[in-house]
Write a protein that binds this DNA or RNA. Structure first.
Length: 457
RNA sequence: GCCCUCAUCGUCUAUCGGUUAGGACAGGAGAUUCUCAAUCUUCAAAGCGGGGUUCGAUUCCCCGUGGGGGCACCA
């Protein structure tokens, strides 16, 4: 059997949509699963929406997700060029081939593709105009996911515009032929285009590729498919928020596909091994950001300490270059980040979550302050803590815990009676890592200063 | 309006005619704990409706209904 060749063919619109990402992913997975070739082709025939900057969004997003292409812009290949804007000669050549078959005609300055069948003029109520209907035989689409789909294509269609440029249907099919594409894996929204494409393949006298129309991703709330404007629709948002690409990939592959059994988090190599087209679902999937967030947390938790610290640093450098965290000594940065690792759901929480460990200029939650300072006798607790601080052993969490417990025991109190107010004083909030860890990392002097400041304020 | 397509907990899904319909996220309760998370235990939660086929249908077929997509000299 010949080698599988699949392609991902986005048009540079300046956005990289989560649905596009999944289409790319499924293509990539199928190529990797079968030992085939993943081609990146840029469909930039729409000249008004064409810019280098927009292309970069595609390259960046695919690279970030780890979806490397075997042929395409930047890497080359034997079937190039891979940008449609550079393939005009090829399209003219194929147009000549098609003209030679007698399946084309010109009308209104455009080139049309002629279907086979009897023609009648009909007034289309919906479009409010007279159109030529063709009584053609149904086109059969053999879809690897949906099975046999029949559709009647009943109107000739334009393949070259009157301005001399080819249209999507034509370039899409020509490129798939010229690039030796064996499997067309794309969104279900293309299913009704496919009958046009099949007719073109047949007219060119070439074998029709296998088709696999994957279900769409529906917006989280409201009706319809996910669109650019929806929350969570853009890949760049996940980059910005410090999501782990491997988590997003894992989440995405579970939207419309499953590895069987109860497996959910699984390594990429395993996904590649198990992925296959017949296993893809037929029904659309609604996007669920909660589940994505959970998947991200699971991946974050599983990261080796060094790896987590490296990712955290990269995240700060990329998105918060001015953060005090980056001024800290590497070992301090590392210690703080590892304290945060088991507590956060995403890297984006890191700056706020760790700020008070790197600077004296951190926010104090007014509500928390009111609550903590209004309960029991916090000022006395603070005074006691400050007084006993010199006797504390700051070398380990256990020693600090011992110190606080000893203090509490003297007044028949518990650890908890000191914890809340100490936390407020030291961090300005009521949530965070163990208070003993905070003490240890801040050191005796800074803890004392903060306790005193709280007592005074 | 026409064409195509899909249909299991709120959501993502498992089940390839016979199951107490399973798992995960989210939600509820509890445990643990110095807070917050995490973790563990636990509860609630589904086969769209109507006809068939069959000894037996969530599963196969048909019709409805509902969802989604498409119907350009956009891609």
């Amino acid at each position: 059997m010949s080698q599988v060749r699949v392609r991902f063919a986005p048009s540079p619109t300046g956005f990289f949509h989560i649905g596009s990402a999944r289409t790319a992913l499924f293509n990539w997975l199928y190529a990797r699963h079968t030992g085939g070739v993943f081609v990146l082709r840029i469909e930039d025939t729409d000249k008004e929406r064409n810019s280098e900057q927009f292309l970069q969004v595609i390259y960046d997003s695919l690279s970030w997700l780890g979806l490397n292409w075997d042929e395409g812009p930047g890497v080359g290949g034997a079937y190039g060029p891979y940008r449609q804007s550079e393939r005009a000669d090829i399209y003219r050549e194929y147009l000549a081939k098609l003209k030679a078959t007698g399946r084309t005609y010109e009308k209104d300055g455009a080139v049309w593709f002629r279907l086979i069948g009897d023609r009648t003029e009909v007034f289309d109520e919906h479009r409010k105009k007279t159109v030529t209907k063709v009584k053609a035989a149904p086109t059969v689409i053999q879809d690897l996911i949906r099975g046999r789909v029949e559709r009647v294509e009943d109107e000739d269609f334009v393949i070259f515009r009157s301005d001399g440029n080819p249209v999507f249907h034509f370039v899409n099919v020509v490129d798939d032929i010229a690039m030796g594409i064996t499997h067309v894996i794309r969104g279900e929204d293309h299913l009704s285009n496919t009958s046009k494409h099949v007719e073109l393949f047949k007219a060119f006298g070439v074998p029709v590729p296998h088709f696999a129309h994957i279900p769409l991703i529906l917006k989280q709330q409201g009706a319809g498919k996910m669109s650019k404007r929806d929350q969570g629709a853009l890949i760049e948002e996940y980059q910005r928020r410090g999501y782990l690409p491997e988590a997003l990939v894992n989440f995405l592959c579970l939207l419309g596909w499953n590895p069987g059994g109860d497996l959910e988090k699984l390594p990429l190599a395993e996904i590649i091994r198990l992925f296959d087209l017949p296993g893809v679902n037929q029904s659309n999937a609604r996007f669920d950001d909660k589940k994505l967030a959970h998947m991200n947390m699971v991946y974050l938790l599983a990261l080796a300490p060094d790896e987590f610290v490296a990712r955290a640093r990269a995240y700060f450098e990329r998105h918060h270059p001015a953060a005090p965290a980056l001024q800290a000594a590497p070992e301090v940065f590392q210690a703080v980040m590892l304290l945060a690792q088991p507590k956060i759901k995403g890297l984006e929480e890191l700056p706020a979550y760790t700020a008070y460990l790197f600077t004296e200029d951190y926010p104090v939650d007014a509500k928390v302050k009111e609550k903590v300072m209004g309960k029991g006798d916090p000022k006395t607790r603070l005074t006691e803590l400050i007084a006993s601080l010199p006797g504390f052993d700051f070398t380990s969490d256990a020693a600090i815990e011992e110190g606080i417990k000893a203090l509490a025991a003297k007044g028949s109190l518990g650890f908890g009676d000191y914890q809340a107010v100490a936390r407020l004083a030291v961090s300005g909030t009521n949530a965070g890592p163990s208070i003993t860890s905070l003490f240890r990392l801040l050191g005796r002097d800074r803890v004392r200063q903060r306790l005193e400041r709280c007592l005074a304020g």
